[in-house]
Amino acid sequence: MSTYTATDFDPPVDSGIQELQEEKDGAVCAYCGSTGTLLECCRCHATLCYGTQTDCIQDGSNLIDSESFVCPVCRHRAREPLDYRLTAYVVPGTYFAAQLAPLCLITAHFDREMYFGSLARTQLRQDYGQIPLLLHDYSVRLTAEGLGWSLTNSTALASAWLASNRASAPMVLVSLETHTDPATGYVAYGRTGRGQNYVASVPEVVSKVLGPMYNQLPLLTATRGLVLFSCGDAVTVPERMHEIENLVQRMVQQTL
């Protein structure tokens, strides 16, 4: 672990590690946003509206067993026929959602609010809205104490999610938005009370953010991606660029 002194351009941060927890909103239809009468899919837990002529599920709804209801996306994925009719405007979206692969999104940022991470989460939550269990994401704010304790639960849950979706070739996308030490090219992942930033190589910070999942990456067969938002020194210092290249190479290897 190294440190460098933060500049006046670095805004103040809160102390401690803070993991961003999303508050769960009230249930709405995954297809149209309706808050009317809803059915919950017993496989993916997506909710769909039914019961009226304007709802997403039409005829046959009076015969549907709410305990065993299977949404159209899950039926498409399992190549099972529908025993109910959908409103026409939601049909194309169900076929699109049925083609999606499981995706684990991990976003980490320093003291400023996320840019790419926020955009990615918003877009992906919309894309996966009809089959929410195929998207798993967590977001970490890198603050004064550096990384560590509060990540344990999130990384454990994400590791279990990857394991449960292994047969479906899950994808992993990591977004890291932080500062760079201009002298060394190391990236920041925390700050001391005296205004010094904890810094390390990009692979070291990524391994801290991912926890035990870091060693799972080479075992995956689907897409693995890294998006780095930082100052140019992280890639213009030859040693740092070489470390990033090695990380990318490691992420795509099929064996440890």
Rank of each mutant, 00 (worst) to 15 (best):
M1H: 09
Y4T: 04
Y4S: 05
A6G: 11
A6Y: 01
D8W: 08
D10A: 07
D10N: 06
V13R: 04
Q18L: 07
L20I: 11
E23Y: 09
D25W: 07
V28N: 04
Y31G: 08
Y31L: 14
G33P: 00
G33F: 11
T37Q: 07
C41L: 09
T54F: 10
I57P: 00
I57S: 02
Q58F: 01
L63C: 03
E67W: 05
C71Q: 06
P72L: 09
C74A: 04
R75L: 13
H76I: 03
A78M: 08
R79I: 01
L82W: 13
D83R: 12
L86M: 09
A88Y: 10
V91I: 14
P92C: 10
F96R: 12
A98T: 04
A101V: 03
A101I: 00
P102G: 11
L103F: 12
L103H: 15
I106V: 15
I106R: 11
H109Y: 15
R112P: 00
E113F: 11
E113T: 11
M114P: 05
F116Q: 14
T122F: 13
Q123T: 15
G129K: 12
Q130K: 13
L133A: 04
L134T: 02
L134K: 14
D137Q: 10
R141K: 10
L142Y: 01
T143G: 00
A144I: 00
E145D: 08
L157C: 02
A160Y: 02
S164K: 12
R166I: 01
R166L: 10
A167E: 07
A169N: 09
V172A: 01
L173G: 01
A183H: 10
G185D: 08
G190L: 07
T192H: 05
G193E: 11
A200H: 12
V202N: 03
P203R: 10
E204G: 00
L210C: 09
G211P: 00
P212I: 09
P212D: 13
M213V: 04
Q216R: 14
L217K: 11
P218V: 09
T221G: 15
A222H: 13
P238H: 11
E239M: 13
R240H: 11
M241P: 00
E243Y: 08
I244S: 03
E245A: 12
L247D: 04
V248D: 03
M251T: 03
M251I: 02
Q254W: 09
